[in-house]
Nucleic acid binder design. Structure first.
Lengths: 344, 344
DNA sequence: GTTAGCACTCAGGTACAGAGAGTGCTAAAA
DNA sequence: TTTTAGCACTCTCTGTACCTGAGTGCTAAC
């Protein structure tokens, strides 16, 4: 069914009002807030027709209308006005992006924090995946007679470390020699290459006893695996309390349990299932959570060759206009600003 | 008022039952679950007397009794039986503590996770403070022509790093020379010494231009400050949903907001205000949160010379017996096992 | 095609009665 | 003197009935 202009206008008005008020919207309400030039009876007729076509729903006979999934879909795809960020908001984004000395993971966390603050929803992000990242440097640093620290530096600036406890003492010189071997053979190599199979074959060419070499290789294998599978984290989980539909304890429980650490695998799955442009996942479209009351807006960021997802999760009655605009603006800036600093 | 043996027995019975059921406890209920050898009327008389003395409260006339703050205090200090950990629980603790290659902060997080799982409450912990920790090693590792990574290794095995973007290119040799200077002058020094004032005075003795030296010193100052003020984090925040008193959305909101990141300063304050032995903070005793429905059990852990707090936060109707026993057992093990590995 | 008017529907609030759990008191028993 | 049986009393909780207000859908007139 192709919607007439008036129907579109009314649908948009209803969804706008509902997003703002969280209350079912009645015909007379619309007349008050929007200039439609018709009577409430006409609006009622149009609403009935929109309901029949599947864009609206009635919680019960004598309530107003509420957008259905289809209504939100049309709203997001065609109807909603683009929110224009205020000067204040733009400044805040710029401020966060221009912070100096950012450690890569911290940068994303800060950005996520800021966006959660700006939008008043919970922000999700994946840590920058370094699919193509390259091992720059290996250091082995003794701490005392039974411990040393292994450090891997990657070309995107991230640093991985692990402390190893060994059952016997290793001379500083032995560790240094091993570092040199490792750097000689492996620095400059892409991490993805340093998997268990490859390293197993390399054992023979490094003349160091396996009690020392094994934990080092184990670490490299773990890091290699871990960078392929990015992590997911969130900020502003308790923002959900600001939205009236989550005055319901069960709904809140479901939401917060979904965001739980134990669940990160499913969240990663969900986020990585989205395409390259900003996408809106409305209610049940989320095949992982399957909750018609919860929606997500997922966007992509790039910093150099590191990529990740940055998303907002909140009630289906979300201010999509603001959220999409904010995410779009932000992700457009990220690469420019964070790499711009590097290049100028 | 000195409590008679029978009063103690009855008080303990009431609190035990209340902790188990979350329902006000009536006189006949006690008779069913405990072998007191008296009638319900006698129990009622004793209950009235315990109420008068301030150990019990009545939600309303026709409800059973509920422990008052004073009741819990006496219970925790004198009455409660010591919970004996099951073989299963002891195994689980042992398993977590014996994991190899633990990075210090990860170790504590894992332990916190495990204890939250065992007790079914939210666990809080402070990261190991390294008050007396000593700088072992400084590395500066170039990444590309405009970025390098600074790495500080501390004697407790923790590694701090930050990526610096510089406005011009530095030769690898310049960075190496600076590393050498830094190690020569500062490694072996306690971190607490490397504050802004001290480092300011050292600038003149290091013949490196300040555009390069400044970010390095800034980083050292930050790390020095940060290790003095330990961080706080938590695991199992959503465990709160398992307890019926938190079916109330407002209470849950208050609880989760209290645990919010923004609030970590106040939580640190609260935790560090406790003494060296395991202590129980019941309801309003918590001067930071001031909520009669929320209690904490705070214990201390040591790993080598690094110390921290490990705590459980939950409803005032908490299974203190189990929580205190579990924390006590765990913290007694931590140092032995984690350092034992190092020494054997 | 639009609108005024009106009957109809339903959620939510208030009022009230009855059931159930538990208490406190009294008088008798131990 | 302490304990206990018995009973009246209190208060919450649940269910039912009723009322109100918001909003709809339909009809007939514009």
């Amino acid at each position: 069914m192709e919607l007439s202009d008036r129907k579109k206008k009314i649908l948009q008005a209803i969804i706008d009002d509902y997003i703002a008020s969280a209350e079912p919207v009645g015909s007379s309400h619309i007349l008050k807030n929007h200039n439609l030039g018709v009577s409430s009876a006409t609006v009622r007729n149009e609403m009935a027709s929109l309901e029949e076509a599947g864009y609206l729903e009635k919680p019960h006979t004598s309530a107003g209308r509420v957008p259905s999934y289809l209504g939100y879909r049309v709203y997001v795809d065609q109807l909603m006005d683009r929110y224009r960020l205020s000067v204040n908001e733009i400044n805040q984004i710029s401020l966060t992006l221009h912070k100096k000395y950012l450690e890569l993971n911290n940068a994303i966390r800060n950005i996520s924090d800021m966006i959660s603050l700006l939008t008043n929803y919970t922000a999700l992000y994946t840590t920058p995946s370094s699919d193509g990242s390259v091992l720059m440097n290996v250091k082995l640093i003794p701490i005392d007679d039974k411990r040393f620290v292994m450090i891997l530096v990657l070309d995107n600036g991230s640093v991985k470390n692990r402390t190893v406890r060994t059952s016997k003492l290793y001379e500083k010189e032995v560790l240094e020699k091993l570092s040199n071997y490792l750097n000689y053979h492996f620095s400059g190599k892409p991490l993805s290459m340093l998997n268990a199979e490859y390293l197993d074959n390399q054992k023979s060419i490094i003349p160091v006893e396996s009690a020392l070499l094994d934990p080092v290789f184990d670490f490299m294998i773990d890091v290699s695996g871990e960078t392929n599978s990015m992590n997911v984290d969130m900020t502003g989980a308790t923002k959900i309390f600001n939205h009236p539909e989550f005055n319901d304890i069960d709904r809140t429980k479901k939401f917060l349990n979904f965001l739980n650490k134990d669940n990160s695998k499913r969240i990663k799955e969900l986020l990585s299932g989205t395409g390259d442009s900003t996408s809106v996942i409305i209610g049940d479209e989320n095949t992982v959570l399957k909750d018609k009351d919860i929606s997500l807006v997922v966007s992509n960021y790039n910093i150099g060759n590191a990529k990740g997802k940055l998303a907002i999760i909140g009630p289906t009655r979300m201010d999509y206009s603001k959220v999409v605009s904010t995410l779009d603006y932000l992700t457009a800036c990220i690469n420019d600003v964070l790499n711009g600093e590097k290049k100028t």
